[in-house]
Design a protein around this nucleic acid. Structure first.
Lengths: 186, 186
DNA sequence: GGTGGCATGTAACCGGTTACATGATTAT
DNA sequence: ATAATCATGTAACCGGTTACATGCCACC
């Protein structure tokens, strides 16, 4: 009875189908032509994933063969799918997320506007900011502590990681002000 | 007869074992305690990977039970392993790498100093720089082109991606000068 | 003598990759 | 007619996750 865990690709599909009911082929084109999260556009990934989601009752597909059109199976979210999608979006932001699942965090964020209130988005961003502000100094410490034993390229690689987290922190501040400005205006 | 393709974890192991012959447990500690590439420290990932590498003849393990020590299996690279490792490091930097396998690129870079000449490292970094300088504008274009249809959070998520690539570009320049300074001094 | 850390392993499961396969429709 | 594109699917393989299992050694 425990709900089957959905993989990241599954949530990406839920998000896209929430925006707009689509066929597997539509999704493939999105993954192939936009910078969307480096998901694979291979049919061997997408069609089985759609089938799983349908099996879990989160989406439903309808064959659209109106008159002369090609046979397309267009999927849309069910009520259960919408619920699962929103629950995913509303999960709290953990340290783990920031350390190992940044891609998932960004995917969640990119879909948020469709569903959640602006205050919830700002809450999400502030949680990200908080986690980054806790994590970055510990990375710097690690770098300093191992400065002497690491080869230069190792040090630089770490430095690159730290910088990218710092950039993300700056971005999160920028995104927060961007939303708070909006709230004031309305 | 075609050489079995090694997964990213496999190369991480080759790199670590190249630095210092180690046991599976040593590796697990490294993955658990350092910011190393977000590899899993679970035994179910590491021990089978080591076994595969040994099966492919790239590493060899020796049980080290000198006197009162605990039973440890210490692995070291074979000649074939060293060759495979160097070939991986010397692969050319492709557009694909930059778009989808940044983690692999950084892993390669972090191990380079052990093996390759400084000129080869600079060549690698310049190739990364070149690919980034070609890729970033196309990302910006995509962002501009879809500005109007994307929800704000989608736009911001993309913006975050672009910024992180820009940071990486800055880093690559910094790394290059860091190496070229060194060359001049010696 | 029992708890906790050291150390290695296995097995079921799951999902992505790769490659193959099919057929319908549009364009040349 | 035939090539390209639309559109969906399947199957083998591979490797990571999760969870379980074992035994040794050190310390108190």
């Amino acid at each position: 009875m425990s709900p089957p865990r959905t993989a990241l690709l599954g949530y990406a599909l839920l998000g896209l189908l929430h925006m707009k009911p689509s066929s597997g082929y539509d999704i493939r084109k999105i993954f192939a032509m936009t910078p969307m999260g480096s998901f694979s556009d291979s049919p061997g990934a997408i069609y089985p994933a759609l089938r799983r989601l349908e099996g879990d009752g989160l989406i439903r597909g309808k064959i659209e063969n109106g008159s002369s059109l090609r046979r397309r199976k267009v999927f849309h979210l069910t009520a259960a799918g919408t619920t699962a999608f929103k629950q995913w979006l509303n999960r709290s932001v953990t340290h783990e997320n920031v350390v190992r699942n940044l891609d998932e965090l960004m995917l969640r964020f990119s879909f948020m506007e469709q569903v959640t209130s602006e205050t919830a988005i700002v809450r999400f961003l502030k949680a990200v900011q908080r986690e980054l502000e806790a994590y970055i100094p510990s990375l710097r410490e690690h770098l300093d502590a191992h400065k002497t034993v690491l080869p230069r390229s190792g040090r630089l690689a770490l430095e690159s990681g730290v910088r990218s987290y710092e950039t993300l922190l700056e971005w999160s501040k920028y995104a927060i002000t961007s939303y708070e400005k909006e709230v004031k205006q309305s």
